[in-house]
Design a binder for these strands. Sequence first.
DNA 1: CGGCCCCTTGAGAAGCTTCAATCATCGTGG
DNA 2: CCACGATGATTGAAGCTTCTCAAGGGGCCG
Lengths: 244, 244
Amino acid sequence: MLKLSLNKYTCHTCPVNQLCIAKDVTETELHCLDSIIKKGKRVAKKKHIYQIDHPANYLYAIYKGSCKEYWIDENGNECITNFYFPGDIIGIESLSKPNYMFYTAALENMELCVIPIPTFLELMENSPSVLKRFITITSQKMQHDQNNGKSITANEKVADFLLNIASRLSERNPEKKQFDLTMSQIDIANFLGITPETINRVLSMLKRKKIIKLKNKKFEIINSLELQKLGKLNYEQEKIDLYQ
Amino acid sequence: MLKLSLNKYTCHTCPVNQLCIAKDVTETELHCLDSIIKKGKRVAKKKHIYQIDHPANYLYAIYKGSCKEYWIDENGNECITNFYFPGDIIGIESLSKPNYMFYTAALENMELCVIPIPTFLELMENSPSVLKRFITITSQKMQHDQNNGKSITANEKVADFLLNIASRLSERNPEKKQFDLTMSQIDIANFLGITPETINRVLSMLKRKKIIKLKNKKFEIINSLELQKLGKLNYEQEKIDLYQ
DNA sequence: CGGCCCCTTGAGAAGCTTCAATCATCGTGG
DNA sequence: CCACGATGATTGAAGCTTCTCAAGGGGCCG
């Protein structure tokens, strides 16, 4: 008991266990999870967590830090498919494949929990509450991914992106209003499918209109209502002009 | 035995069982699946299979026909998140929710297999091969959804869309080269996030260049190589001019 | 057969990209 | 510790793509 409570890394004491696989599982199964998952793996900023086509042996749960998931198209462009934050589990889309389907690279220094896939599959077969939690996570991810990228204009895309990021980070730190925007504007551009210049112009406009604060990657939403309206303002008269 | 073999609707004899949940499950578990799933539900063209916010009691496997999945945004626009074809399972993203997360509407007259969610969850807990197949389906869907919509220009989006549809329909009917494009150009527009006019102009250009045939919803790819190149041609010199 | 969608095409306007130049920031090696 | 180089952020101007609005044509269903 003493040993456990002194350990920085247990699912019991993890600050993001209510977002992760540990949520809603029974006490005994939580112990199983804890014994299966190796805690404290460090990955330095800009390093890969895993690479595309490499053997998919592990899922990773994020304890600290953030990362981007991407693939490289025929022209050598990074196509970013997702960003992940503490409590998120990465690699799920590779769960039934021999090799990973994407690259995943750290946007800052990270600490990860390592989940061996064969053991995890076995645990799901024997633990209904872990299976149930896994299904919840996957169905949420599907819902999120399917909704993703349905906005049309650049203003709408950036507004929806910022609201999405802010809502996910607030979930993790309800008291904090200011966040680190760990990804570059180029990363955001590659994620949203628009150019870095356009991203920058929209962000500059949002700063000028005092809808957001953004300086040295420190990011804060000042006028959330206006930002939400911006996500819907397309095809209406009182559109906020990007170049104004 | 006689009774089973005479039944048009069994997972054993289903023409798309190798795409559906029935693939790779053991003989005994296939019988369980068969007894759980109610076959032969008909849904007429333009009718809903299920509606958003209604109680999510069933998953549906498509036996025949095709459908669109969508939600309605603040301006009343249909935001189409996916199209589905025989062998596909719909409703998975609502599996852990009390209510459905999307609308799903038939694009033509359909026949469906009805999977009661509580019974299906129970079956997964007790049948490792069904669980494994389910994980394969969800991870494939995630991979697909994440890659989705990462093309940038209208030419690229339409080209990638046509190639995707053709590849999925070929998988179901390897001998057929000509398909029914069951969704309207407006539906495609709402799915890709561009206007119907732009969709139409790209399709007209593809017809003019003899890359595809398209007449009265009958669709065929003539020059697959050129269509694939078109999906990649952006930011290169020999771009095919949309308005030429 | 009429009405209703949907498809088709054109022209002008708006939005986004491209190219280019400057500035800021960060990490590294001397 | 500072200088340097590399990468990312910022802004401007021009051109291309896409949207918007509009009008006509075609196929399908009652």
